[in-house]
Write a protein that binds this DNA or RNA. Structure first.
Length: 871
RNA sequence: GCGAAUGUGGCGGAACUGGUAGACGCGCUGGAUUUAGGUUCCAGUGGGGUAACCCGUGGGGGUUCGAGUCCCUCCAUUCGCACCA
């Protein structure tokens, strides 16, 4: 056997090129369906092609790659695809800044980022690559949208948007800064415009119930989704009133129908028809309604604004008491949510309480809890306690508890045909219309004679012209006659094409299914999808825990109901990775703006215990302030470019550091020293293998009769294998897997025995270490596996199994506590019974000293672990 | 404001099922090699105490033979809130 010629030095660049060339030549990552083999579909959330990779991408895709390679070593047929979430706002912003069409900017970025991904050595099947801005992809967005129109799942209604009155354009929430347009600084207004919606609420019940089918999703994500869907049972009912002699009804919804006798006013949104009517002859109210329409539409803003209101002068009739109830306009009531009107019970709702106090409205207690005293001085939590409360001052309902009162009141309202119980969802239908250029066109044609007409299937895709350059004043598609002007599919007369495009969340709601159908020209997905789907492991940022994941689950269910796919859920197992953070350094000049410094430009001063004294700028030696830890961002100048990291240390070091610094679900703090440490470990590993193979091939021996030290090392080798298998396969704690391989290699270094027997044990330890690390640092392991004398490539090797014989132990160390405090350790034979363990524990010198002849009350023995002696 | 999470040495983290707190790595200290620095190697490293020991997991309280882990409460930080992706 010719020994592999191994460089003495670890040369990452050469090692990584060799391994990547090999994988490329062998088409190692091509995924081919094979019904005889168990498949494993490992998917990472695809990137937005923003320009270059950031550390969050590197972390995300390394986690995915480790799982992919591990599953492959388990013998599964793996698929790991990659693509581009290519439509979106940043391309338009870049276009405005540079005068380059979004398409060109996007494709340039894709080319660069693809090169970066390849340099990291991810086991991706690039033949399945897709970009959502390709007509071949987005035509199926349009196709399924048309199916949804047919089913009534897609429909049109008005929605509220942020409107910049100067640029005459709709703004994204992100473009509204402190209530003003980001480019113009103009105070943003709310505006009602027609939009297309997808009736995700039709699936609310199933989306909620099917969370049960996702036991491998993080509990917190399921909880967040359940809260977001927000199922509540309540009562929808009406306050009748007369308007210009007509009988009208003001509808509201409440989850606290038991407090209905405490209603002292109602509040409606500024856009509510009742408010509009009342403002006709009331200039003050009209002005107030205009004021309410200013500001952003963001939920977080609305929840924190100062609550303001004004009476409409209109009264409605209480449906049960018949008393008049005044109606107010409230800036905190949303037209787009529920009925756009609410009943107000100031005694038992905190917001209503403060509103009533502010405007001097009556507060009527109708719920009591025990002997608690109700007072108008300050809000008390128990006022809203439906669990412990019962009705008072409520006539026939007095004494009833929450659910009995709701039942009785709902029945009475129903008898009067003024209301009934109803299930209510917090979830709202998904508005998908965007008044933007760089997105998937909505396939609708507006005809003066036929109305809104769907584009015919045979005319799909509606192709987006790629040569537009937006200028910030509305959608440039409106200025493209060649796009807008068309013939009505129904009557053939001249008509106008819809210029709104789809929310990019549509694009990302089904890309995983398209990857699985490699080349499907005639359908949204083909038969191959049935083999690969569902995704076995999905990996992405926690920031997508609600919207993207909920929309994808919804879209998948619609595809299922259209007969395209089988199965209720697209993603079986989910891993939400934490953010990548770095320290923030800055100086605050006496005048002028804060100046941020990249951590690479800063030197930390420490005392002789390693404690931090301060930080100075390397270039001038003057102190800088620390702004704590934050996500890597341009504005805080605390980003680290993955490219420079790869160039300096290589992909394996980058991957190792990312996996070692924190468990995947937690935030990860950047550390240059930590990266250097990862690199040091790889050099040490290389040297260890090099020193070993230099002595020639290790002999094949029988492991049954080994000296104690060799036996210990062999046991540790197999224990480590068992732990790493569990850490990567089940727990997904790559950091602890790496730590235990480090421990094993520390033991190999210390194992000072040159005998043939020892060489064989060392060979096994090194082989296992290389295979265990192969999913994490695949390039160096590719080289080391060859160096250890194997003709087949590491990528094709099966994951080893621990040997029970090697794991066997004769005695165990048991910890002995006295009154719960650690006082000694004793060695006991593995098969020792509880009595024997207790006897050995009490016989220990240190333990006997602490017992000191005092009476032993109780002895607790935890087998194989510890003994606690209670005095 | 609402929803979700996190908090352990100088730092990142480990402790998986209520059972040895601080694995592994970084930093720091001392030493060796080299000596210009770095690299590499060895030893030490939660705090206090001469020691026996004592104290220690964001703060306060509780359950238990035993709590970083469970319960209550408070504080701080991070993420999401529907047109950023």
């Amino acid at each position: 056997m010719i020994p592999y010629k191994m460089d003495e030095q670890y040369l990452p660049e050469k090692t990584e090129k060799d391994a990547q060339d090999y994988w490329e030549r062998q088409h190692s990552f091509k995924a081919v369906p094979d019904p005889k083999r168990e498949k494993f579909y490992c998917l990472s959330m695809f990137p937005y092609p923003s320009g270059k990779l950031h550390m969050g991408h590197v972390r995300n895709y390394t986690i995915g790659d480790v799982i992919t390679r591990f599953q492959r070593m388990q013998g599964r047929n793996v698929l790991q695809p990659m693509g581009w979430d290519a439509f979106g706002l940043p391309a338009e912003n870049a276009a405005m800044a540079n005068g380059v069409p979004p398409a060109q900017w996007t494709w340039d970025n894709i080319a660069y980022m693809k090169k970066q991904l390849k340099s990291l050595g991810f086991a991706i099947d690039w033949e399945r690559e897709l970009a959502t801005c390709e007509p071949d992809y987005y035509r199926w967005n349009q196709w399924l949208f048309l199916r949804m129109l047919e089913k009534g799942i897609a429909y049109k209604k008005t929605g509220t948007v942020n409107w910049d009155p100067v640029d005459q354009t709709v703004l994204a929430n992100e473009q509204v800064i402190d209530g003003r347009g980001w480019r113009t600084g103009a105070v943003v207004e709310k505006r009602e415009i027609p939009m297309y919606y997808l009736a995700i609420t039709r699936y609310a019940e199933e989306l909620l119930a099917d969370l049960e089918k996702l036991p491998e999703w993080p509990e917190r994500v399921r909880t967040m989704q359940a809260n977001w869907i927000g199922k509540s049972t309540g009562v929808r009912f009406a306050f009748p009133y007369k308007l210009d002699g007509r009988e009208e009804r003001l509808w509201v919804f409440t989850t606290r129908a038991d407090t209905i006798m405490g209603v002292t006013f109602c509040a409606v949104a500024a856009e509510h028809p009742l408010a509009t009517h009342a403002a006709r002859n009331n200039p003050k109210l009209a002005a107030f309604i205009e004021e309410c329409k200013r500001g952003s539409v963001m939920e977080a803003d609305l929840a924190t604004i100062e609550k303001k209101g004004m009476p409409t002068g209109i009264s409605v009739t209480h449906p049960l008491t018949g008393e008049p109830v005044p109606v107010w306009v409230g800036n905190y009531v949303l037209m787009g949510y529920g009925e756009g009107a609410v009943m107000a019970v100031p005694a038992h709702d905190e917001r209503d309480f403060h509103f009533a106090k502010q405007y001097g409205l009556p507060i009527r207690q109708v719920i009591a809890v025990g002997s608690e005293k109700f007072s108008l001085d300050a809000w008390q939590e128990w006022y809203a306690d439906k669990e412990r409360g019962h009705c008072v001052n409520s006539g026939k309902y007095d004494g009833l508890g929450y659910s009995a009162a709701v039942d009785a009141i709902a029945a009475d309202l129903k008898a009067k045909s003024l209301g009934d119980k109803q299930v209510m969802w917090r979830l709202r239908d998904w508005g998908i219309s965007r008044q933007r250029y760089w997105g998937c066109p909505i396939p609708i044609i507006h005809c003066d004679h036929c109305g809104d007409v769907p584009v015919l299937d045979r005319d799909l895709p509606v192709v987006l012209p790629e040569d537009c350059v937006p200028d910030g004043t509305g959608n440039p598609l409106n200025k493209r006659a060649d796009f807008v002007n068309c013939a009505c599919p129904k009557c053939g007369k001249p008509a106008r094409r819809e210029t709104d495009t789809m929310d990019t969340f549509v694009d990302s709601s089904w890309y995983y299914a398209r990857y699985a159908s490699r080349r499907s020209d005639s359908a949204m997905v083909d038969d191959e999808t049935a083999y690969w789907m569902p995704v076995d492991q999905y990996i992405g940022g926690i920031e997508h825990a609600i919207l993207h994941l909920l929309y994808s689950r919804f879209w998948w269910k619609v595809m299922r109901d259209t007969g395209l796919v089988k199965g209720d859920e697209p993603f079986m197992r989910l891993l939400t990775q934490g953010m990548v953070l770095n320290e923030i350094f800055f100086r605050k000049p006496a005048s002028g703006r804060i100046q941020y410094f990249n951590p690479a430009e800063v030197e930390i001063k420490t005392d002789d215990k390693g404690g931090r004294l301060g930080a100075v700028l390397k270039s001038d030696g003057q102190p800088v302030e620390s702004g704590g830890i934050g996500t890597m961002s341009k504005s805080k100048n605390n980003g680290v470019d993955p490219q420079s990291l790869i160039e300096q240390y290589g992909a394996d070091t980058a991957r190792l550091f990312m996996m070692f610094a924190a468990p995947p679900e937690m935030t990860l703090e950047w550390s240059d020293e930590g990266v250097a440490g990862a690199s040091r470990f790889l050099r040490r590993l290389w040297k260890l293998v090099h020193d070993h193979v230099r002595q020639g091939p290790a002999p094949k021996i029988d492991f049954t009769a080994l000296p104690e030290a060799a036996k210990d090392l062999r046991r540790q080798t197999h224990q480590t294998l068992a732990k790493v298998t569990d850490d990567i396969g089940r727990r997904r704690t790559f950091n602890t897997a790496i730590a235990s391989v480090m421990e094993l290699l520390n033991a190999v270094s210390k194992f000072d025995d040159a005998s043939a027997l020892a060489r064989a044990v060392r060979q096994e330890a090194l082989e296992f270490a290389v295979l265990m690390l192969a999913p994490i640092v695949p390039h160096i392991c590719h080289a080391l596996w060859q160096a250890l004398g194997h003709p087949e490539a590491a990528i094709d090797v099966r994951w080893p199994k621990p040997d029970d014989g090697a794991l066997k132990q004769d005695s165990l160390e048991i910890v002995v506590q006295v009154n719960g405090k650690l006082r000694g350790r004793v060695s006991v034979p593995v098969q020792a019974g509880e009595d024997k363990v207790r006897e050995l524990a009490l016989a220990d010198d240190a333990v006997a000293r602490h017992v000191g002849g005092k009476p032993v009350k109780k002895v607790i023995v935890v087998p194989g672990k510890l003994v606690n002696i209670v005095l």
